[in-house]
Simulated scan of single mutants.
Amino acid sequence: MQGKKWIAAALVCGFLLGQGTAPAQAGILGTVVKGGAVSLLVSQFADQLNSAINTLTAKYPISSDYATKVVPIITVGDGSYAGAAQVSGPKEQVDKCQAALQLEASFFKSFRAKALIPVDKVAISGINRVQGVGVSAQIDVKI
Rank of each mutant, 00 (worst) to 15 (best):
G126M: 05
A123E: 15
A24L: 11
V32R: 08
Q102S: 15
L56A: 15
G83L: 03
S64F: 02
P90E: 12
A22P: 01
V70D: 08
R112M: 06
V12E: 08
T21C: 08
A67Q: 11
L17I: 09
F107L: 06
V130H: 06
V33Q: 08
L40V: 08
C97A: 15
A99R: 12
S88F: 04
V12C: 00
T31E: 14
D140I: 02
V33E: 07
I143P: 03
I124A: 11
A113V: 14
L29G: 05
P90L: 03
G27P: 00
Q19V: 13
D120W: 13
I143R: 03
A8L: 12
N54K: 13
S136D: 09
N50C: 15
R129N: 06
N128W: 05
K91M: 09
V71H: 11
G83M: 02
V32M: 12
T55H: 11
T75W: 02
K142V: 12
D78A: 11
V87S: 02
T31W: 04
G30Y: 05
A22T: 11
K109L: 07
T57R: 10
I62S: 02
G79P: 09
A84E: 04
G132F: 00
R112I: 02
A84R: 03
D65L: 05
V130A: 04
I74D: 07
P90D: 12
K69Y: 06
S39L: 10
S136R: 08
L17H: 07
R129T: 14
V141N: 02
A67T: 10
I7H: 01
A67L: 03
I53S: 00
D65N: 12
Q19W: 09
I124D: 13
G35V: 01
A22Q: 05
V76Y: 10
S63W: 00
L101F: 12
I124P: 00
L29N: 04
K114P: 00
K91S: 15
C97R: 07
D140K: 12
M1Q: 09
S110P: 00
V130W: 10
A99D: 12
A137V: 00
A123Y: 07
K59W: 02
A9N: 05
G20F: 10
A137H: 08
L103E: 06
T55Q: 15
E104P: 00
G132T: 00
S64Y: 02
L49E: 02
R112W: 04
W6C: 03
F108K: 12
I124G: 06
G79Y: 10
Q131K: 11
S136N: 11
I7N: 01
L29E: 01
Q98C: 13
V42S: 08
V122Q: 15
Q19A: 12
A115H: 03
A85F: 07
L40F: 04
L49S: 03
V12Y: 01
R129I: 13
N128F: 07
L101R: 10
